[in-house]
């Protein structure tokens, strides 16, 4: 069974092909080498917003339940935003209770891109950012500009930060439904 190509992997390859053929503006993404279940992506801050010129890196972690279950999406770059937690995870309904299997990677990334300039202050993941967004837009934008600047500079360090989430204590989420170690190999050849 595990050597045949699973629906999740088939769909991810299709998502990849689609993203390459028809990339939306300001978005890049690709699976990491030899592991179609883990993706790296970059979202460029939309023009005319405080996030303009930012290049924010993310990771997307898929399970075999994709597309019936949303991937875990996290910013690797620091993002100062009302709906982004300190650990980089994102509070966005389509990644949680409104996920639908008809969404795809392009849709996820474009939704996150629009979220940058259209925060939802009612479900704050970063209370300070939410408060500044409402009450002191100038200071909010200054803090956003800081993370925009950081987003170009600290490439190497951030690459290493990625594995941190393994030690958060609650391993039952990623740990349990993560890939079996042997499940990584077969698809590389299928490409």
């Amino acid at each position: 069974m595990s050597s045949s190509i699973t629906p999740a992997r088939k769909r991810l390859m299709k998502d990849f092909k689609r993203l390459q053929e028809d990339p939306p503006q300001g978005i890049m993404g690709a699976p990491v080498e030899n592991d179609i279940m883990t993706w790296h992506a970059v979202i460029f801050g939309p023009e005319g917003t405080p996030f303009e010129d930012g290049a924010f890196k993310l990771t997307l972690t898929f399970t075999e339940d994709y597309p019936n279950k949303a991937p875990v999406v996290k910013f690797v770059s620091r993002v100062y935003h009302p709906n982004v937690y300190k650990d980089g995870s994102i509070c966005l309904d389509i990644l949680q209770n409104k996920w639908s299997p008809t969404y795809n990677i392009t849709g996820i990334l474009t939704s996150i891109q629009s979220l940058l300039d259209e925060p939802n202050p009612n479900s704050p993941a970063n209370a300070e950012a939410a408060q500044l967004y409402r009450e002191n837009r100038r200071e909010y934008e200054r803090k956003v500009r800081d993370c925009v600047e950081e987003s170009w500079s600290s490439d190497e360090e951030e690459e290493e930060d990625e594995d941190e989430d393994g030690q958060d204590g609650d391993d039952d989420d990623d740990g349990a439904d993560g890939d079996a170690p042997d499940a990584d190999k077969p698809d590389a050849a299928e490409q």
Binding site: K86, S89, A125
Partner: peptide, 24 residues
Amino acid sequence: MSEGKDEVNRDQEIMAQMDAIKKE
């Protein structure tokens, strides 16, 4: 990323819990 985690991602926790129940 180093300022500590005063705000935890509850959604993720809730989803992990729901996954555990579904798995059972």
